[in-house]
Design a protein around this nucleic acid. Structure first.
Length: 171
DNA sequence: TCAGTGATTAGG
DNA sequence: CTAATCACTGAG
């Protein structure tokens, strides 16, 4: 089950502004329900960075929902929004430096809500450790895509400064 | 452009 | 307990 190319802790504990763009082109491996493992190439991510980032959920403190972001990088942060959609995030950085990379799209499934619905991500993945789990991890790939950047989507509430950070990465 | 949808959160 | 909010999507 352990993939040869599985990314290790060292990859995740770096700053989210490094990890989020590096996730582009990597392979997300998931086994949900009774289905066999499937691989999805990550094509779009966004960085959420620390308590000072008004768009980051952790900026409003450590709560039951945001708790996992305060742990060492390499874990999964999943939350429910708009009454319908699960969002999939990868926790990055060191302990007590809450950061996460939102997986917005993978090859074949464009949009964070649509992709989690399609590949079967829900609350049960909250806190999953990508370096240990037998149902979700990320593998390195030979792909070196050209990465574009832009503003993060859907965070008008965060104010002009945080809204205009170029922290969205995509192919 | 705008409503649906319900977990999460802050505040009595 | 209540009410506001929301890292989205699909229909029009």
């Amino acid at each position: 089950m352990q993939g040869k190319k599985r990314l290790t802790r060292d990859f995740y504990i770096r700053d989210v502004l490094i990890v989020a763009p590096e996730l582009i082109g990597k392979a997300l491996v998931v086994r949900s329900g009774i289905k066999a493992c499937r691989k999805y190439i990550i094509t779009e991510t966004e960085a959420y960075r620390g308590i000072e980032d008004k768009a980051c959920h952790a900026s409003r403190g450590r709560t039951e929902r945001t708790d996992v972001m305060f742990l060492q990088g390499g874990k999964v942060y999943v939350y429910f929004v708009y009454g319908m959609y699960w969002m999939l995030n990868i926790v990055t950085g060191e302990e007590n430096n809450p950061q996460a990379a939102l997986i917005r799209s993978v090859e074949g499934f464009d949009g964070p809500g649509k992709l989690t619905r399609a590949i079967g991500i829900d609350k049960s993945f909250y806190g999953e450790d990508l370096t240990l789990s037998d149902r979700m991890w990320i593998e390195d790939s030979e792909i070196s895509p050209v990465i574009k950047t832009g503003q993060r989507i859907g965070i008008d509430y965060a104010g002009e400064f945080w809204k205009t950070r170029q922290w969205r990465y995509y192919i």
